[in-house]
């Protein structure tokens, strides 16, 4: 992908079009039209606060499913006599939350939406809200992550003073399974903590492997310094604007990014009581 990096287009409106075009023109839009409403502006819907009916997130930019799981028992091709090798389990796509979210989630989402309006950040910057197992996740457009973080830290009604953690997740399907490629498999995950209100939220940014750029949040949360260096080191995510984005855990001259799914675990077979035990990444896998 040849799109310029996040920081360079901070002053423009985010288009949101690339992620949304596929889903937004589908059934959800027609449903919206059937109800007599305006066609939803792309990615705009889930944060709107006027009336519960319009908050159906389907009109927004839904996240692509993560990797599929294929086969069982780690046997593929002709060696599979069980038939389980042909099993396909669909990828997991986090479901958008529906109003009312329950608890303090509604209040927080409203406050964030209003604060974004005041600061002139398009509501489409939040692609999706997911509530799962009592935790709320905001999927944020990468171009807006820095501004959203600044807002979350500074707004009196939000006050997320502490950035607990920044890390990556690689949802790429493991090689050799024949699973289709995952769209935007690289995720950067931010865990925020509000000590004033005793709330925890999670921000998540999805990235393309070919264009793994995301604005650095170090200027808002200095603690992100080492976290972002680690995420660069382990996942190859480039944090634009980081003061010194160097490797932190691996040696400076290391090749590759070890936590990527296409990076092998390594290891050698070990002999034990006459039998040879293959290295962990070559053993049978059941999931």
């Amino acid at each position: 992908m040849t799109e310029p990096t996040g920081t360079s287009k901070d002053d423009q409106e985010p288009t949101g079009g690339k992620q949304s075009s596929a889903e937004a023109s589908g059934a959800a839009t027609e449903e919206q039209r059937a109800r007599g409403g305006e066609p939803p502006r792309e990615g705009e819907v889930e944060q709107s606060t006027d009336g519960a009916a319009d908050t159906a997130p389907e009109g927004g930019t839904r996240l692509a499913p993560t990797r599929e799981r294929r086969g069982m028992f780690g046997v593929r091709g002709t060696g599979d006599t069980s038939g389980f090798g042909g099993l396909t389990l669909p990828g997991y796509a986090p479901a958008p939350a529906e109003r009312p979210y329950g608890g303090w989630f509604d209040e927080l989402a409203d406050e964030l939406a209003e604060a974004m309006d005041r600061k002139g950040i398009a509501r489409a910057a939040v692609r999706q809200i997911t509530i799962d197992r009592g935790e709320i996740t905001f999927y944020v457009e990468r171009e807006r992550i820095l501004e959203v973080c600044r807002l979350l830290r500074d707004e009196p009604a939000l006050r997320f003073e502490l950035l607990s953690s920044v890390s990556g997740v690689d949802y790429t399907a493991p090689g050799g399974t024949g699973a289709p490629p995952v769209r935007q498999p690289l995720h950067v995950v931010y865990q925020l903590l509000s000590m004033t209100y005793r709330r925890r939220i999670r921000l998540e940014v999805a990235l393309d492997v070919d264009d793994p750029h995301v604005p650095s949040v170090v200027e808002v949360y200095p603690t992100a310094d080492w976290h972002e260096r680690e995420t660069w080191d382990m996942f190859g995510v480039v944090f634009d604007g980081h003061p010194a984005l160097t490797r932190i855990l691996m040696p400076d001259d290391w090749q590759g990014h070890p936590q990527r799914k296409d990076y092998p675990l390594g290891g050698i077979p070990v002999e034990y009581k006459g039998a040879e035990i293959p290295p962990p990444d070559e053993r049978r896998a059941y999931s």
Binding site: V169, V189, Q191, R202
Partner: peptide
Amino acid sequence: GQVYSCVESPRGELGYHLVSDGGTRPVRVH
């Protein structure tokens, strides 16, 4: 799904970010 769970370790907030895709192995343990 994914969760973040934390405890108060002797040194401070010890948090685990765990991601599962439904299998028997984690997708990510941070």
